[in-house]
Nucleic acid binder design. Structure first.
Lengths: 157, 157
DNA sequence: TATTGTTATACTCTATAACTATA
DNA sequence: TATAGTTATAGAGTATAACAATA
């Protein structure tokens, strides 16, 4: 086996990103576990915390989670009494999502732990490096959205 | 719903990375599909192409794929006659992996397509931006490995 | 007729234990 | 006894179709 056995793949941003993200995911999963959360449940809880009264369909769009998959995650959080679903007065099909007092405590502690984790993962990067990384990642995300939109346009002319 | 409903999560590199990687993954999956490949099968094929005679356990370590999961991927590639498994002469437990002529053509065409995709996803980034991004991602991957090693040390003092 | 939330289902990727055959 | 490859299996995460209640 040669010195850099994945040299062809290492030229691609996607490959480096998959590996860097796998490292982050493993670490943040371990960080969240003691709080009773996973990446998905944590991000759902946090977005509801930031947007009281949010509907499930809105949450689904924000976090790019299909509505059917969101139902189970919300069932879990509701079962723990960390969020509440209350029927919307103006549209009785929809639920308004809110984080309970208990859920707020869990969410805030978890956010502190995740912030620590994030700092650790960025060790060796300057503030400018971090900022540039955020910008580059946002650019890539947006490039992906564009090419997806293009495909949509092509398939429905 | 507020203007930036995921503002808390957007502060974290992991969140931006998950979204950027999801965009890349969706795009590269669509790019590879016409070649009969997925991300996993493509990366396996490419690493074998770069390292003829590689053993499955080595491949497993390089790509961070558990050996049992690799077996099915190799079965698939072997079934397509894109790779060959031949018993090693010096160790009759192991297989030597090689890409067939047919597999080489598929792999090279796919690599050209993935290179295109990679360029598209990096649209708007300068060569220096790209270079910095590679370095930052490698740094994060390595930070992840360190914290994992630390945990290992702690659990076996 | 369209939308909100839901159920059922299937597919991919990942992870672990236990087996076989060789070493 | 240890290692290489394999089998079986289970768990996440993700995706789509179809349904009931409501708009």
């Amino acid at each position: 086996m040669s010195e850099r056995p994945d040299r062809t793949l290492r030229r691609f941003l996607g490959y480096d990103m998959k590996r860097a993200f796998a490292a982050i995911q493993a670490d943040v999963t371990a960080v969240l576990a003691p709080h009773g959360l996973r990446m998905l449940t944590y991000s759902v809880l946090t977005v509801i915390r930031d947007n009281p009264g949010l509907r499930q369909s809105q949450l689904s769009e924000i976090l790019l989670i299909e509505r059917p998959n969101l139902v189970l995650i919300l069932d879990e959080l509701e079962g723990l009494d960390w969020i509440s679903r209350t029927r919307a007065r103006d549209d009785r099909r929809a639920y308004e999502l809110r984080v309970t007092l208990k859920g707020r405590r869990v969410c805030d502690r978890a956010t502190a732990a995740v912030a620590d984790h994030d700092t650790r993962m960025a060790d060796g990067l300057t503030a400018a490096d971090r900022q540039a990384l955020h910008l580059a990642l946002n650019r890539i995300e947006s490039n992906g959205r564009s090419s997806h939109d293009d495909a949509d346009q092509l398939s429905r002319p």
